[in-house]
Amino acid sequence: MEGETQKFSVCMSVYKNDNTADFTDAVLSIYNQTCPPDEIILVIDGPVSMTMYDAIEVLKEKTGIMKIIPLEQNMGHAIARQTAIEIAKNDLCAVMDADDISLPDRFEKQLQAFENYPDVSVIGGFINEFIRTVDNVVGSRIVPECDIDIKNYMKSRCPMNLVTVMFKKKDIMNVGGYQDWYCEEDYYLWIRLALAGYKFYNIQENLVNVRVGEKMYQRRGGKKYFLSEARLQKYMFDHKLITYPRYIYNVLIRWIVQVAMPNKLRGWVFRKFARK
Rank of each mutant, 00 (worst) to 15 (best):
A113L: 07
S140G: 10
I150E: 04
E129K: 12
K109V: 01
K109I: 03
V134D: 08
D147C: 09
R141K: 13
V137S: 10
N116K: 11
I148V: 11
P104F: 05
R106K: 15
F130Y: 15
A98P: 08
D149H: 08
P104Q: 10
C146W: 01
D135G: 06
S102P: 03
D149V: 02
D100W: 04
I142V: 15
G125R: 06
G139R: 09
F114V: 01
C146Q: 12
N136T: 13
Q112H: 06
D105S: 11
Q110V: 14
V143A: 04
C146A: 11
K109R: 15
V143L: 13
R141V: 10
Y117F: 13
N116Q: 14
D149Q: 11
A113R: 03
D147A: 07
I131D: 12
S140V: 03
I127D: 03
F114W: 03
P144I: 05
T133S: 14
P104A: 10
F130G: 05
E115F: 02
A98G: 14
V134F: 03
V120F: 03
V134N: 11
N128P: 00
V122P: 10
E145T: 11
Y117I: 02
D119G: 00
I148G: 11
E145C: 13
I150N: 06
E145L: 03
P118S: 08
I150M: 06
T133W: 07
K109M: 10
R132H: 13
D105L: 06
F114H: 02
L103V: 12
L111A: 11
K109S: 05
D119P: 00
A98F: 04
K109W: 08
V122R: 07
V143H: 05
R106Y: 03
E108Y: 10
G139E: 09
D149P: 01
S121F: 01
V138T: 15
D149T: 11
F107P: 07
V143N: 10
N116V: 00
V138Y: 11
G139P: 08
G124N: 12
R132T: 15
I101S: 07
D119F: 01
I131G: 02
L111D: 04
